[in-house]
């Protein structure tokens, strides 16, 4: 009998703990919880207009992989081997990005978009959008005019506030 009572007490304690923890998580305001930007050179800003190749909706950091377009905005840039050069821009987790409207559904392959990023320090072709970097998506498959970005195309969609920053070298 005592054992049954003990089991019930342990069960009640466990159930209460789970309920309290779950409630706390439900009530917690979603916060920008990036661990650190130390991996990125925040002093450098690169501005791209590119074509989405893939979105990785990672729970911690959503990544958009894209092929940067040339200045004429006619093709994607290719390396010496003829293969497209691919970059990635990272941002908040997939759920927070979805709240902004950025997801695998709204950025399917082929989407043309413009954004600024701070590149990785290790030289790999990827960077962070930063805290609130603005992103502009071109309407349909309509690229901007030569040298321009999606914010100049009529009917563009904007994610975030402000305007694209100027390029900044170290």
């Amino acid at each position: 009998m005592k054992t049954k009572v003990q089991h019930r007490v342990v069960g009640a304690v466990l159930a209460t703990s789970v309920a309290v923890a779950t409630t706390a998580m439900m009530l917690a305001a979603p916060a920008w919880a990036h661990h650190s930007f130390a991996a990125y050179n925040m002093e450098v800003t690169k501005v791209f207009t590119g074509v989405v190749t893939r979105v990785n909706p990672d729970a911690n950091h959503l990544q958009i992989f894209f092929a940067p377009m040339n200045e004429e905005r006619k093709n994607v840039i290719r390396g010496e081997d003829g293969k497209p050069i691919i970059w990635a821009v990272e941002m908040a987790g997939s759920a927070q990005a979805a709240k902004e409207g950025i997801s695998v559904n709204t950025f399917p392959p082929g989407t043309i978009f413009s954004m600024a990023l701070h590149p990785l320090r290790d030289g790999r072709p990827a960077g962070t959008r930063g805290r609130e970097g603005v992103i502009f998506k071109c309407p349909g498959r309509k690229p901007p005019a030569p040298g321009k970005h999606c914010d100049s195309v009529e009917g563009h969609t904007q994610y975030g506030t402000g305007s694209l920053p100027p390029e900044k070298k170290e």
């Binding site: 893939r54 911690n60 093709n75 497209p84 691919i86």
Partner: peptide
């Protein structure tokens, strides 16, 4: 797993980048 997802720059096979606007 959480530390090896990294960057996969491969272009999916069904994505066509051979276009000219």
């Amino acid at each position: 797993i959480g530390f090896t997802k990294g960057y996969n720059f491969d272009v999916p096979q069904d994505v066509n980048l051979d276009f000219t606007f």
